[in-house]
Every structure is written in C-alpha cells, then in structure tokens.
C-alpha cells in the first residue's frame, strides 16, 4: 500500500499543479522546487491549462506487473502549451489515430489500482481535443 505517496502528489495528478519560477518565469512540471532553467528556488504554484500536443507516442503490449489488464494501451510524451513535457497515457483515441503534433487535452482517469481490494489511483491522461461543431 502506498496511500501516502499517491496522496502527496494529488494536486499534480488531479490538476496538473506545477510551479513557476519567480526569477525567470519558467513554467515547471512536475514541481521540483529548484528551477531547471536558472537554478534558483522556485516554489510558486502554477496550474497548467492541460492543453498541449503529442511530442511522441507508442503502444504498449507487454505491460509491467499491475497493468496487464489495461494492455494494450498507448502512452505519450505531451508538450504542454506552457512548455514542459509530461508523460501519460492517451485515451479516447479509438476515433482518432495519434500522431506527432496532435493537439490533446488533459482528462482525469483511473491510472490503476493496488489489487482487487486496494485503493484506486486516479490521475491525468490526455485525449485528442474534440472538434466543436
């Protein structure tokens, strides 16, 4: 059981809360408290929009232990519109084949569970931006 480790990063998992550097304005996700751009302290919270585009992607067939029931699934690195790359699964792609550069948006989905009786782990995935009629 890793309840505390999932609880600690709920703001990141549920709302893509990262940081903005007060010194150089770099947007940072995941939060790391030291700005990777300028090296100064960066602890100011910043909520990302959740919009971005696919940097790269692939489909996984041989899942690691704990994820076998989900396989096959498609994972991606998404470049957020504010700059950072984030790694997550793609979802709702049965209607649209993923491609590099495809616009995507964050949604909250079940990432997995710790066994039949364990906690459910929720967090961000990304889906193609829906065309508005």
């Amino acid at each position: 059981m890793e309840i505390t480790s999932h609880w600690r990063i709920k703001k990141q998992r549920y709302a893509l809360v990262g940081e903005v550097c007060p010194h150089c304005s770099a947007k940072i996700f995941p939060p790391r408290d030291i700005c990777p751009e300028c090296g100064d302290e960066a602890k100011d919270h910043y909520q990302f929009s959740g919009r971005g585009e696919v940097y790269s992607y692939t489909t996984l067939y041989n899942a690691p232990a704990g994820y076998e029931e989900q396989a096959p699934y498609t994972v991606a690195m998404v470049q957020l519109e504010e700059g950072p790359l984030v790694t997550a699964q793609l979802t709702d792609i049965d209607v649209k084949e993923p491609e590099v550069g495809m616009p995507v948006e964050m949604v909250t989905r079940k990432l997995g569970s710790e066994g039949d009786r364990g906690i459910l782990i929720y967090g961000y995935k990304f889906r193609p931006v829906l065309e508005t009629a």
């Binding site: 790269s56 996984l60 041989n62 704990g66 790694t87 990432l111």
Partner: peptide
C-alpha cells in the same frame, strides 16, 4: 511518480 505510474516500460520510453 511521473513515469512508471502511467504503466510505462523501458521499451516504450525508448520507442517514443
């Protein structure tokens, strides 16, 4: 926290 939790493997990271 930010890679493996999404069900990744080394192979998919290399594939991307």
């Amino acid at each position: 926290d930010y890679e493996s939790i999404h069900g990744l493997t080394q192979t998919v990271l290399a594939a991307m």
